[in-house]
């Protein structure tokens, strides 16, 4: 696989899997207005995923016929996040990353520039949405503060992987990306009266993580659900 394809796969899988996780909220959001908001974000991400996967091959073959170990998304996006606070925390951590990454890609001259120019606008809104909710949950009630604190701490150990250089993206300055991300996340957390976690940002395991095709236990279950219908009818068109 060419480096550009590898990069498209990594970014495409990120968007595909997070979109799927957000789609799980349909009918379960804390308020109706938020149903609409979460679906908008999920649809933006699904659009990004389809554009990126199509650069590599057939989008459906890639989404439905790869096994778990062939997915290259970061582990952060595959976390179940059934508590709304966890979903907000994940959105904050991931959309800040995506926005900074697409910002750099949009400014560079590479194969992803046109796609990034669109995605950077979308992710700016995702970041804003996550920020608004982080502020309200962090600085809302004692209960919401506690849920938000636990959520950010629980996901913190998946954030180190975001800055692992992705093959095929030579235009990205990963150190600058990390600095931007840390600054922005810190700013929002502080305004939300939440402490920036001090724990490790990745697990101590030589096997690696999502970018190496090593995922967390809930991911296999998620893929089983996502892929089973497509795989039950080999060769069918939908």
């Amino acid at each position: 696989m060419s480096p550009a394809h590898a990069a498209a796969l990594a970014l495409g899988d990120d968007a595909l899997i997070l979109s799927h996780r957000l789609g799980e909220w349909a009918g379960r959001a804390p308020v109706l207005e938020e149903e609409v908001a979460l679906a908008n974000i999920a649809l933006d991400l699904l659009g990004q995923a389809r554009a990126l996967l199509s650069l590599v091959g057939d989008e459906d073959e890639l989404a439905y016929l790869r096994d778990e170990r062939a997915f290259r998304n970061v582990q952060l996006v595959e976390q179940p996040c059934e508590d709304f606070a966890a979903t907000v925390a994940r959105q904050l951590l991931f959309s800040t990353y995506q926005h900074a990454l697409y910002g750099q890609l949009a400014g560079a001259d590479g194969p992803f520039t046109p796609l990034a120019a669109k995605a950077v606008k979308e992710t700016a809104y995702h970041r804003d949405h996550a920020e608004q909710w982080t502020l309200r949950l962090g600085d809302g009630t004692a209960e919401s503060h506690e849920r938000m604190r636990r959520a950010v701490e629980g996901l913190w150990r998946f954030t180190g992987e975001l800055f692992q250089p992705v093959e095929g993206l030579p235009e990205i300055d990963w150190q600058a990306l990390r600095a931007t991300w840390t600054e922005r996340v810190t700013d929002v957390l502080e305004r939300a009266t939440l402490a920036v976690p001090t724990g490790p940002q990745s697990a101590a395991w030589a096997a690696g993580a999502g970018r190496q095709g090593v995922h967390t236990e809930p991911f296999g279950r998620m893929l089983a659900e996502m892929q089973h219908l497509h795989r039950s009818h080999p060769g069918a068109t939908w």
Binding site: G23, L46, R50, D60, M226, H230, A236, W238
Partner: peptide, 10 residues
């Protein structure tokens, strides 16, 4: 979560 193609899912 089980839509059989990405187009149908969207």
């Amino acid at each position: 979560t089980r839509a059989p193609s990405l187009r149908r899912k969207a």
